[in-house]
Amino acid sequence: MMTADRAAEVAAMLGHPSMIEEIAADYPHYEIHRERNGSRHGDWRAAQGDVEVRASSVEELRALLQEQEAVQ
């Protein structure tokens, strides 16, 4: 059974461009990927030099990257 949060994340990723593609375009200096734990997806990660942020959703990843950019 899919939770409402997971359904929203899947819907956001299926659009064109997907939300993660938009984030990657907005933050091209970060290497962005999703961890895998066997056959399951893990957290989203964005890294630039010594800075790394982790998030369980693409919405959270965007918010963390916005915060990180504000600090720099």
Rank of each mutant, 00 (worst) to 15 (best):
residue 72 Q to L: 08
residue 15 G to L: 15
residue 16 H to T: 13
residue 30 Y to M: 12
residue 43 D to I: 01
residue 1 M to N: 07
residue 9 E to C: 04
residue 24 A to G: 01
residue 50 D to V: 01
residue 20 I to H: 07
residue 70 A to K: 10
residue 45 R to M: 12
residue 54 R to H: 10
residue 33 H to I: 01
residue 43 D to V: 04
residue 63 A to V: 09
residue 63 A to H: 11
residue 57 S to D: 08
residue 24 A to V: 06
residue 12 A to L: 15
residue 67 E to W: 05
residue 24 A to T: 13
residue 49 G to R: 02
residue 28 P to K: 04
residue 59 E to W: 11
residue 69 E to N: 11
residue 36 R to E: 11
residue 44 W to V: 00
residue 51 V to H: 12
residue 32 I to A: 05
residue 59 E to F: 06
residue 11 A to F: 15
residue 48 Q to H: 09
residue 68 Q to E: 14
residue 64 L to Q: 10
residue 49 G to M: 03
residue 2 M to S: 12
residue 48 Q to E: 10
residue 29 H to R: 11
residue 59 E to T: 05
residue 51 V to G: 01
residue 51 V to T: 14
residue 8 A to S: 15
residue 18 S to Q: 04
residue 54 R to A: 08
residue 49 G to I: 04
residue 63 A to P: 01
residue 58 V to A: 15
residue 2 M to D: 10
residue 59 E to R: 07
residue 33 H to D: 13
residue 65 L to H: 01
residue 50 D to M: 06
residue 59 E to V: 03
residue 8 A to I: 08
residue 40 R to M: 06
residue 49 G to Y: 06
residue 71 V to D: 07
residue 60 E to S: 11
residue 53 V to I: 06
residue 60 E to Y: 02
residue 67 E to D: 06
residue 13 M to W: 11
residue 34 R to N: 01
residue 48 Q to D: 13
residue 48 Q to V: 03
residue 45 R to L: 14
residue 35 E to M: 11
residue 1 M to E: 12
residue 56 S to Q: 12
residue 60 E to T: 05
residue 32 I to Q: 10
residue 56 S to E: 08
residue 20 I to C: 05
residue 34 R to Q: 15
residue 14 L to P: 00
residue 22 E to N: 10
residue 25 A to H: 07
residue 3 T to G: 08
residue 43 D to N: 14
residue 29 H to W: 08
residue 36 R to T: 05
residue 9 E to F: 07
residue 5 D to C: 09
residue 17 P to S: 02
residue 13 M to Q: 15
residue 21 E to I: 02
